[in-house]
Design a protein around this nucleic acid. Sequence first.
DNA 1: TCTTCTAACATACAGTCTGTATGGAACAGG
DNA 2: CCTGTTCCATACAGACTGTATGTTAGAAGA
Lengths: 217, 217
Amino acid sequence: MTAPRSTRSLRSRRAEHTADTRRALVRAARTLFAERGYAATGTEDIVAAAQVTRGALYHHFKDKADLFRAVMGECAQDMAERLVEQETARAESETGDAWTLLRHGFQSFLDACNDPDFQRIVLVEGPAVLGHSAWDALVEQHGYVLLAEELTRAIDEGSISPMPVAPLTRMLAALISEASLYIARAEDHETARKEAGEVLERLLTGLSRQDPSRTGA
Amino acid sequence: MTAPRSTRSLRSRRAEHTADTRRALVRAARTLFAERGYAATGTEDIVAAAQVTRGALYHHFKDKADLFRAVMGECAQDMAERLVEQETARAESETGDAWTLLRHGFQSFLDACNDPDFQRIVLVEGPAVLGHSAWDALVEQHGYVLLAEELTRAIDEGSISPMPVAPLTRMLAALISEASLYIARAEDHETARKEAGEVLERLLTGLSRQDPSRTGA
DNA sequence: TCTTCTAACATACAGTCTGTATGGAACAGG
DNA sequence: CCTGTTCCATACAGACTGTATGTTAGAAGA
């Protein structure tokens, strides 16, 4: 993996170049997959955008689906980093009980999902292209772990009632994903965001242990 | 549409035959799409299973995606009919307050979604193959209307708190869809069903107006 | 430095698939 | 009986994917 031992700079030059072409392929594919979809994007389009030839593509990736897997992994990674970043920022700045923090966390999770690349590649094309097992493995790795441990902690802290974390994780992720798609596809994003947030808020109160009834407007 | 006017029986014979081939195509495509997926199913495979040639396929359908649309429409139709059937049966047999009926309705909705054809074709492949606008149109037509009016009625009756029905419909549908996928993909379907049902139950209590706290176990 | 070997591509090719165009057969209508 | 249309089969053209082959540049050893 990180095994370049001898002739540091020279090898680095070469390795850097190959890494560049690989990145160029992933970047080009990501753009095209996001705007045209997987099936409608030819490998020729991708390599043209990356300014290489198809030979480079099939040297770095097993096949087209393998390239897609790399692209989706990158999208999921970006999303995960964004979420972690948001969460740490919120944990520092905001004050309040655990339950409120959790609710706010879900709301900003919803905002983070409002990303065209993520929606199209991860949520829409991903399951169909990779199949559920490969898709689930990727999402498990990048996204579910964060959400799952967050939920486990919330249960341990008593913010939400004890319940099976595995289905809860999937179902909440699906809930927020669908909400983000609803917002993105709506004509009026503003009101759609507000309405979806309201529904999300209501549904989340069902998880609450102490059931804080109506908290705010 | 229903315009056969003259020479009833003869025309009927011919029309019946053409309708047969069309049905054969849809049935074959449905089976193959469900088990292999859209991209992995060639038109040759479909017409072979239907015992016709590709000419018949492209006579009845504009292209492969058009055939898929018909298949998905049939799946959605079946699901809708099953739901209506279940609901009427439940409305007659079961007794209880509106809130309990609604909750039981969602649970049997969850069971109804446990169908391989429906899951693969409508939930997984549909969005990627048809695109969100065409997919949404189909689901709107067959499924959302039922759920939406059910929810509207529940709000009017006071079973659940007032909230925007459009996002609520989508989000609940996504919730239950994901739950059904989770159950289907689990090794132990029994416990997965129980756990998902429990989580669903909890989330739904957030919608309740009078907030019946802990109702059951 | 010279040789050699291999990674990193480019190019050419074969197979497959989709959609269309053409042809024909059966049936309805005048 | 004749004509037109529906319904479908066959043949063909284009596109696309994956692979096999060729080529070059850099790394490694002597």
